[in-house]
Design a protein around this nucleic acid. Sequence first.
DNA 1: AAGATATATGCGAATGCGATAATATGTCTT
DNA 2: AAGACATATTATCGCATTCGCATATATCTT
Lengths: 123, 123
Amino acid sequence: MSIVSRRLEDELREGPEISPELDRLMRNARKASDFLKALSHENRLLLLCLLAEGERSVTELENILSLRQPTVSQQLARLRLDDLVTTRRDGKTIYYSLANDDVRRVISVIYDMYCGTPASDAK
Amino acid sequence: MSIVSRRLEDELREGPEISPELDRLMRNARKASDFLKALSHENRLLLLCLLAEGERSVTELENILSLRQPTVSQQLARLRLDDLVTTRRDGKTIYYSLANDDVRRVISVIYDMYCGTPASDAK
DNA sequence: AAGATATATGCGAATGCGATAATATGTCTT
DNA sequence: AAGACATATTATCGCATTCGCATATATCTT
């Protein structure tokens, strides 16, 4: 990870031109912040926590979290657009689950931070 | 992690009262989403990436990222308020660094996702 | 004390986001 | 085909965030 500033500072010394390395880094940062924005919502975080345990239907999520159907559906739509979750239809009901391991990994870290040990609950 | 929905569903069966477990979970989710919101910004993410390599003065950050001083200062202030970074004064200059290991851990995961392998840069 | 440097803050305009309610779509059953 | 159930979409409104700019504060030097 310590290569980041090294590269940027090297380019800085070469003059005030536009730095391709910085440009690359900024594009990555934009994508990363888009991903994090998708996570940065109380309800979406709860939904993802549940989905981390396995797939769920909209109705199940609605009941477990005591949220209204349009709310759940709306937030799931957002997560779908950002490719954080995928769906599977079975008759009337649609089952949601986490889309990939990146999501799983981040959710796991966040879960450990805020729900990990009982002591940390009051953090 | 699979205890979350178990507990919630148990409480659901007991009736429509307000669930203390859900309440606790929602408070944690709020804190977690506040934390993630602080991260969910292109420039703040870049700042944190640099700080993950070691402490930096405002001027250094400003030069490396080619951002204006008020912009850098403003985003650092936000990170300070959310306890993601700490400061150390030495004369005129103020050095910033990451506040704790939680931040370090999350930044590391995000960095791996978006800047990890060269191939993943185009992700 | 004055000037220079380093950092912080306040403000107004533009934009984006979330909650809610109402409505629409799709699928099954009979 | 009709009605019931599961899910999705749309519109509106109010609120919070962001950005750029101007300005303020703090520290050092001479």
